Simulated scan of single mutants.
Amino acid sequence: MPRSRGSRPISMAFEKDFIRLPLDRICPLYAVRTETKGTVKYRQVAASIKEVGLVEPLVVVPDKSDPGKYMLLDGHVRHAILMDLGDKDAPCQVATDDEAFTYNKRISRLATIQEHKMILRALEHGVPEERLARALNINVKSLQDKKRLLDGICPEAIELLKDKQVSLTGFRVLRKMKPMRQIEAAELMVAMNKYTINYARSLLAATPASQLVDPEQPKAVKGISRQQLELMERESANLGRELRLVEDTYGTDHLDLVLARGYVSKLISNARITRYLEMYHPEFLPEFERITETEALAS
């Protein structure tokens, strides 16, 4: 492998080719619980494997203590489903190192918009709606709802939420807002890292009538009076303005903070200054040391 002088060769995280392994040679790191097998997500994966087969391979690593055996790093649910279906082997991707404790952190779960695009792509390639619905373990009506997910959603809001786990109902709520308010609502969701249905409904409740697609339709929110809705609208507007102000000054404020923290760190590293503070301003020294510790943690 070519490399520049003094540099180290780059090692591959996985073997280049997939291999088929007998399931009895793969050792899961944990057993899939009965409660997990009763969830909707488990049934969806099981229906997909039964209908179209295993799409994503299992990820394994050779067991150093037992040649011929492999530890399962990722795919415990898929492995359990294959065992339940009576399959004897499965395609596997072999890792070159034990990533058991970090692999799942590097997986980007399928977001709602990504699933929508996957469904559109499958339909464009001629997959019948009935078969696709069976593979996803949903009915045809739900599949059609997922297909129309982004109808009435502006491109800017789609871009903000493209990799987020927003429910179908959340997008239905956004659809009731005009484009500019959709963007504001999406920005607030991202800033607060909240994508729940209740949060989307609270944003709708705080939306002025002028920013709704159908301003004539009253916003009936259970347990909230008209006065409380008006208060929420004002607070939402204030929060949006404050968010934009923070975005405008965040870069400068962060740079100022880094510089000030670095300066304090240099002061504390000077023994003469430290002794002076201990003698004449002992109340300052613990605070300065705390700032220095924060810098060490951030670096």
Rank of each mutant, 00 (worst) to 15 (best):
E115W: 06
S265W: 11
S210A: 11
T249Q: 07
G152C: 03
C92V: 04
L82A: 08
A209P: 13
G75T: 04
S167I: 02
E242T: 03
Q182K: 10
M12C: 10
L245F: 03
L239Q: 07
Y263A: 08
L21G: 07
P57H: 04
P67Q: 03
D84N: 04
V60T: 12
D74G: 10
Y103H: 15
D98Q: 06
A95T: 10
E159L: 14
Y280C: 00
S269Y: 13
A111M: 04
C92R: 12
D74C: 00
E230P: 02
T274Y: 13
A90K: 14
K222H: 12
L132N: 01
R8V: 13
K117N: 14
K64V: 11
P67T: 08
K194W: 08
H281Q: 06
H125A: 10
R244A: 11
T36G: 04
D145I: 12
D98Y: 03
I119F: 05
E295D: 05
A13H: 09
P2N: 08
G240V: 05
A111W: 02
I107R: 13
P28K: 01
N139P: 11
H76Y: 07
I138K: 11
Y280A: 05
N238P: 00
L203I: 09
L188M: 14
K105C: 06
A206Q: 04
I273N: 14
T34F: 14
A191P: 13
E184M: 00
A13Q: 08
N139C: 02
D17K: 14
R78M: 06
L160Q: 00
V258G: 01
D24A: 12
D248L: 14
D24V: 05
D151Q: 14
L161A: 03
V246D: 04
Q228D: 12
K266Y: 07
E287T: 08
V77R: 15
P62N: 12
L285S: 01
L285M: 04
A111C: 09
M180G: 04
L212E: 05
D97Y: 15
L168P: 09
Q217M: 08
K219E: 00
L161S: 02
S269G: 06
V94E: 14
L29V: 07
K266C: 14
G86H: 09
G262P: 12
I10H: 06
G68S: 12
K176Y: 05
Y263D: 06
R226Q: 13
T294F: 00
V94L: 11
T102Y: 03
D17G: 00
I113F: 05
M192A: 01
I138A: 03
D163I: 09
Q182L: 02
R5C: 00
L277C: 07
V166H: 03
D253M: 15
V258E: 08
Q227G: 12
H116I: 05
I107D: 08
R234W: 13
Y263E: 01
R244P: 09
L58T: 12
P91H: 07
G126Y: 03
V166D: 00
Q165D: 15
E278V: 10
R5T: 03
Y70H: 08
P282H: 04
M71W: 15
R20W: 04
L267D: 02
V127N: 08
H79D: 08
A205V: 07
S11I: 15
K164Y: 09
